[in-house]
Design a protein around this nucleic acid. Structure first.
Length: 290
DNA sequence: GCCCAGGGCTATG
DNA sequence: CATAGCCATGGG
C-alpha cells in the first residue's frame, strides 16, 4: 500500500470540517470523489496511506506543503483563535474542483451538512459516472454539460436551488474562460458574484476551497455569531464589516483562521463559551470594534 | 406546529 | 442602506 509521511495533519478534521461533501467513510478509510476520480486515504499517526491516486496528487489535494505551523504562528494573535487552533490540530484546507465547488455550495444554502451530502449523492448517482475502487462504488458529480433539467433536479431534492444550478451550469463556459485563478481574489470574487444564487458567502467558499485564495473569509451564520460573540461583543457587525476586519486582522491566511474558528465554534455549544467568557475563563478584547 | 439549516433574491420603507 | 418575506425540504 503506498503511503507518505505527514506532519501537522489530521485527516478526519480535514475531511469532515464542512469544506468537502463528496466523501464516504468505510473501515477507517475515507473514499473521496473529486472530478471523475475516486481515491481513498487512511491515516495512522504520521503515516498517510492512499489508493486510487499518486502521492503528488494527495499532497496537492490536502495542501500538505502548506507550512501549517508557520501559518498558525501568524494567525495566533489572540486567545480565541489560539484555542481554535488547539481544538482542531492538523486541520488543513483542501483543493476542490471549481465546478464541483460551485455545485456543492449552491446546494448548501439554507441546508445542513448531512442534507448537502445526501443531495449531492443523489445528483451523482442519477447523472454522474460510476466509479469503483477495490470494490467500493461511488459516483462522480456530473460536469456542467451533464446537469439535467430544472424539474429533474427538483426531483432529486435540491428544492429552490434547482434554477440556480441549471443557470450556473450554463454559465460555466464563460466563467472558465475568464480563468478565475489568474484574475486574483477580488476580481474572481466579483465574477462569481455575477452567477445567480452566488452571494458573498458562497463566492468566498469557492475562492477559498477551489481557487486557493487563502485570504477569503466566508461569513456564514455560525461565523457571524462567532465573530459577534468573541470579536464584536458590544456591537452587531454587518457581514461586510466582518469581512473587512478579517482581511485586515488575519491577513493573507484569513481562510485558515475561518476554518479553525468555524470548527471551534461548531464543536462547542455557544452558551458554554459565553458562560466561560463571563466567568473570565476565556478572555477576548474587542480590538478595534466600534 | 415551530424553528433552523455553512444564503440569496426581491420588494418595500 | 436596512429589513422582511420568500424560496423547498428535512430534522429536532
Amino acid at each position: 500500500m503506498p503511503q507518505i509521511t505527514v506532519r501537522d495533519f489530521n485527516l478526519p478534521s480535514t475531511v469532515e470540517c464542512g469544506q468537502l461533501f463528496t466523501y464516504a467513510r468505510s473501515n477507517e478509510w475515507y473514499y473521496i470523489t473529486r472530478n471523475q476520480r475516486l481515491f481513498a486515504v487512511r491515516q495512522a499517526g504520521g503515516k498517510l496511506e492512499y489508493r486510487g491516486a499518486d502521492g503528488g496528487f494527495i499532497r496537492w489535494f490536502f495542501r500538505l506543503d502548506d507550512d501549517l505551523p508557520g501559518i498558525r504562528r501568524l494567525l495566533e494573535k489572540d486567545p480565541i483563535i489560539t484555542r481554535a487552533f488547539a481544538s482542531s490540530m492538523g486541520l488543513r484546507l483542501v483543493r476542490l474542483d471549481l465546478w464541483e465547488a460551485i455545485l456543492s455550495f449552491l446546494c448548501s444554502q439554507a441546508c445542513n451538512i448531512p442534507r448537502i451530502r445526501r443531495v449531492l449523492r443523489n445528483i451523482a448517482e442519477a447523472w454522474g459516472k460510476r466509479l469503483e475502487l477495490d470494490g467500493f462504488v461511488s459516483h462522480s458529480l456530473p460536469r456542467p454539460e451533464g446537469i439535467p433539467s430544472e424539474a429533474k433536479l427538483r426531483a432529486a431534492g435540491v428544492g429552490f436551488r434547482a434554477g440556480y444550478i441549471c443557470r450556473a451550469a450554463e454559465a460555466m463556459d464563460d466563467v472558465l474562460l475568464e480563468r478565475l485563478q489568474e484574475l486574483g481574489y477580488p476580481s474572481a470574487r466579483e465574477k462569481l458574484l455575477s452567477l445567480p444564487g452566488v452571494g458573498p458567502k458562497i463566492a468566498d467558499c469557492i475562492c477559498l476551497f477551489a481557487l486557493g485564495f487563502l485570504q477569503a473569509f466566508p461569513v456564514d451564520t455560525w461565523i457571524r455569531r462567532m465573530m459577534h460573540d468573541f470579536y464584536f461583543p458590544r456591537s452587531n457587525p454587518k457581514d461586510g464589516e466582518i469581512t473587512r476586519f478579517a482581511g485586515e486582522y488575519f491577513g493573507e491566511y484569513a481562510g485558515y483562521a475561518q476554518q479553525y474558528l468555524y470548527a471551534f465554534y461548531r464543536g462547542c455549544p455557544p452558551e458554554r463559551w459565553k458562560a466561560a467568557a463571563r466567568d473570565g475563563r476565556i478572555h477576548f478584547d474587542s480590538r478595534q470594534s466600534p
